[in-house]
């Protein structure tokens, strides 16, 4: 089986999307004969022609991106617009998505996932569905046990996809947990993220006292 993974993160090689999909791709390669190509969408922004051709010729495509203002980043939308001429063409690839966000709950991603599913149908691609995961900002500073959990889930989803050509619903559901947070977990998690992730970076940059600045007011 052949797969083209289009990494739509504007952070390109330094993206959380890429770190997670790296495990998926390792799992995917478990099945002998499977091959993949990874493309960084942001690097094609000046001219999408080559990437569109690659999309059209692929057997399977997964487009990955971080959630930006509740949807795809504008640069990913640029590529989606470049795909329009392919609409309805025969032998288009099966199309799936991977979307992650910093919000700890996966529920934030369900809305854009509906768009992704409809987009696959609009193009005439067999929809593979979406791999969704909240809580992915600052992967590097997250506790190792959490990262290990995310990574093993992505590996398992990739391995299953490599064998069957489908995303396994049970594995997707396991990965998506927590869909929502319980009140007590929220109380614990919010200060952990606010101080541990954000204030720590502001402190390092000597701007913690400017945290709530409003520089755009007239």
């Amino acid at each position: 089986m052949n797969l083209v993974f289009i990494n739509g993160s504007p952070r390109t090689t330094k993206s959380n999307t890429g770190k997670l999909m790296d495990r998926f791709l390792r799992g995917f390669q478990e099945t002998a004969g499977n091959t993949f190509d990874q493309e960084y969408l942001f690097k094609h922004r000046k001219y999408f022609g080559q990437l569109v051709e690659k999309f059209a010729a692929a057997e399977n495509v997964i487009i990955g991106f971080p959630l930006y203002v509740d949807a795809m980043p504008g640069s990913v939308k640029e590529f989606i617009e470049a795909l329009e001429p392919l609409t309805g063409r025969k032998n288009l690839p099966a199309l799936g998505f991977v979307v992650q966000c910093g919000f700890p709950e996966t529920a934030h991603l369900r809305f854009v996932a509906r768009y992704c599913e409809k987009l696959a149908r609009r193009l005439g691609c067999q929809p593979l569905g979406s791999i969704l995961k909240g809580g992915c900002e600052g992967l590097d500073v997250q506790p190792d046990f959490l990262k290990a959990k995310y990574f093993s889930s992505f590996y398992a989803i990739g391995a299953h996809f490599g064998k069957t050509g489908n995303f396994d619903e049970t594995l997707l559901k396991k990965l998506a947990h927590p869909e929502h947070l319980k009140a007590e977990n929220m109380l614990q998690l919010i200060p952990f993220i606010n101080q541990g992730l954000w204030d720590a970076q502001m402190e390092k940059n000597n701007v913690l006292d400017k945290s709530f600045d409003r520089p755009l007011l007239p």
Binding site: V69, M72, G74, K77, I80, E84, L119, W198, L216
Partner: peptide, 30 residues
């Protein structure tokens, strides 16, 4: 392709400086 133009979406994405990184609970969500 079923969504607002990339021209508009890019402008919307650049609204990030208007909000704060800190999270809080609003109606059961972060």
């Amino acid at each position: 392709m079923g969504f607002v133009s990339s021209v508009l979406k890019n402008a919307m994405d650049r609204k990030l400086p208007l909000i704060h990184p800190h999270l809080e609970e609003i109606e059961g969500e972060v």
